[in-house]
Simulated scan of single mutants.
Amino acid sequence: MLRVLMSIGVALWATSAAAQEFPVTIEHAFGQTVIEARPTRVASVGWANHEVPLALGIVPVGFARASWGDDDGDGLLPWVTEKLDELGAQAPVLFDEGDGIDFEAVASTNPDVILAAYSGISQSDYDTLSRIAPVVAYPDGAWTTTWREMIRQNAAGLGMASEGEAMVAQIEERIATALQDYPQLAGKTGMFVTHLDIRDLSTIGFYAAADQRVQFLEDLGMATPRAVREASEAGKYSGRVSAERIDLFNDVDVVVTYGDMARLSELVKNPLIARFPAIARGSVILLANDPMGTAANPTPLSIDYVLEDYLTRLADAVARGEG
């Protein structure tokens, strides 16, 4: 497994004198946020926004507790633990977002900026958070921020836009290098299915073209099937079609979804699902509630952690379809 940790963090922080001057203005879906001075107490809400300051050598004062893929139950994903260890830091305050944002917990950390570039915050959430500290919100729609945009948006809020750009370039370079060993993925189509429930097979749910799980498959050399692109609504991260229209997905080479083999075995007995070629021939990657399943939704620190494993599983799924 490729576990090349982001060693650029401390070096980038050391060169931050070259970053943009303050105040900085961040444009986002709710308008704009002005950050008057370089933040020293950074908090984040939503998914993985804390990984941007960590990768840049900054330990946040608080961020969301991991609720998916946390094998040991400490609220930290393994790549976050590794980065904290690398920085010689303890885990900060972890916000429990099981029932939504814990505004009191966020306020208790006394932040001077709140990162939320990849999140689903509402206008009301944004307004409440803004009474605590300036908020870096998502640029377009809820949960549609790509890992590149997450880095750029959050890094800009830290006054480290150029360092964020360098981070994006280095991740892209590592992906491109790894891809050289997997030419069989080029041009194959990958679909990330969200809804295959044996109790209700009336519809097929999928992550839409704007979702970064789908865009990560494109990063890994695969194409988004035409039916997914056409059925994806602007600004939406997921979609759904009637299972009676399952023939739309005849051009899908690989299906990625959450579940286990027992579930898949039951699904393929359904006459409608059996008409889904990729599923019928076993070109399926089943992700569990573990770090691999979590990192299929890519983040700045998780990409290196799972890259080789994910590429291997995609190549194996392609081979099953051609066998």
Rank of each mutant, 00 (worst) to 15 (best):
L201D: 00
M150Q: 15
Y182N: 13
W147H: 11
E230A: 07
I171P: 04
I171H: 01
H195Y: 12
D200H: 05
G159D: 05
L217N: 12
Q170T: 11
G187V: 03
V214R: 07
A169C: 08
L217G: 08
T177C: 02
E165V: 08
V168W: 06
R152Q: 13
I198N: 11
E165L: 15
V214G: 06
T145L: 01
A166R: 07
A231M: 12
A169L: 13
T203C: 06
W143C: 08
E218Y: 02
T203E: 07
T203A: 12
Q212I: 00
A156N: 04
T145G: 08
F206M: 03
H195S: 02
A176T: 10
M150F: 00
F206E: 01
A223D: 14
G157S: 04
L196D: 01
R229I: 02
G190D: 01
G190R: 12
T144G: 06
A156I: 04
A208K: 00
G190I: 02
L185T: 00
R148N: 08
G157W: 00
W143T: 03
A209E: 15
D200S: 06
M222F: 08
K188Y: 05
R229V: 07
R152E: 04
A208V: 03
A186E: 12
D181K: 11
T189S: 10
T144Y: 00
R226G: 00
L196Y: 01
L201Q: 04
R199D: 09
A209K: 15
G205K: 09
V214A: 07
L158N: 10
V193R: 08
R226V: 06
R174Q: 15
A223I: 13
H195G: 00
S162V: 14
R148E: 14
Q153G: 09
R229M: 11
R199A: 10
Y207P: 09
P183V: 02
A231G: 07
M160I: 06
M160H: 07
I171E: 14
S202P: 03
G205S: 12
D197R: 09
L220D: 12
W143F: 12
F206A: 05
D200T: 12
K188V: 01
E149D: 10
Y182Q: 13
L158G: 14
Q170L: 05
A223P: 10
T145P: 06
R229G: 04
G164D: 00
D219T: 04
A186K: 15
D211V: 07
M150H: 06
M222V: 08
Y182R: 15
A161V: 04
G190Q: 03
P225T: 10
L217I: 11
Q212C: 01
L196Q: 01
E172R: 13
A166V: 13
A227N: 10
R148H: 15
Y182H: 15
M150A: 06
D211W: 10
T203L: 09
E172Q: 12
R148F: 00
R152W: 01
A209Y: 15
A209T: 12
R152S: 03
R229K: 07
F216N: 14
M167D: 02
G187T: 02
T203W: 07
M222S: 01
M191A: 07
L179M: 14
V193G: 00
